[in-house]
Nucleic acid binder design. Sequence first.
DNA 1: TGCAGTGTTGCTTC
DNA 2: CGAAGCAACACTGC
Length: 326
Amino acid sequence: MPELPEVHTTVQGLSSLLKGIKITDVWTNYKSNFKAYKNSIKNPAFFTQFKKDIVGTTIVDATRRAKNILIHLSNRRTILIHMKMTGHMIIGRYEMSSVTKDKKDPWKPHPSERAALHDPFNRHIRLVFTLEGKNPTASPGHVDRKNEKFHLILSDMRRFAKVTILETDKLHQSADLVDIGPEPLDQDFTYTQFASILGAKKSGKIKTVLMDQAVIAGIGNIYSDEMLWRASIHPESLPSKIPSLQLKKLFVAMKTVLEQGIDFGGDSMSDYRNIHGERGKFQAEHKAYRRTGQPCEFRGCKGIIKRKIISSRSGHFCDTHQILYI
DNA sequence: TGCAGTGTTGCTTC
DNA sequence: CGAAGCAACACTGC
């Protein structure tokens, strides 16, 4: 379920822990003929080239654009990872079991690794980068040899993730990133811009529009429900019909909810985990998402949270205090 | 037991 | 043209 706050948390971990670390190998068991994955490592020919491109390089930094993780390498190339529904990345020591070699997911955490890495949610390991350098996650008792091998893995139960490689200089012109809208947490992203983008939307419901990556980057199902609840706007409202006072509230709610998500280390209601394999805590702050049938907690409101499919996504809202503008 | 439901996105169909 | 629906995949919970 990684949305902006979850991807942000992961990227912050990668950036703070892996700068200057060398990539010495890469392994995957992804394989798919699905057209959308033609330019991804799920295509075996693409993976062969991918491996040549990255082995021997050093990680320069990691950044985020919308829900994409961007790992910049020393050879002016960038690995792009979109975790889609169930992907999450973890750093640690892993080993390939010889006994289970033929099984679907042969990699498992080293027995001495912390308990979080052994969580069943973290065991759908589809992609493994072997790294070399000082292991930044080594536990205090572990004797850290200077150039020990450790790993960056992608656990992805449903196998929806997309992994590709691009030239760093041309990154933002690439098909994967070129059509993405402004970053909601950018200081430069003002209410005036927000209002003009949404005001220009002639059709589409506000919840759907907020989740459209070409409109605003990084918002998904959970955070769209939460920001609309806080702004008292019904998710089926038409953006162009929302009065400016309420739209301003939405703009503020968008920033505060996303920042709150980051402050709580992301949302682990489902299987998101941070770079150490640990849960985030934002799920305890939900006011709408997956609270169907529970009393609305908006001050003074006596409503009950409803669930309704909106543009084939599950929307959660209170139809008492969230006003429908159409 | 079986099937509805799940965070995302892009392609197909209408 | 835009919008809706489904498919990619695997698992949980009712």
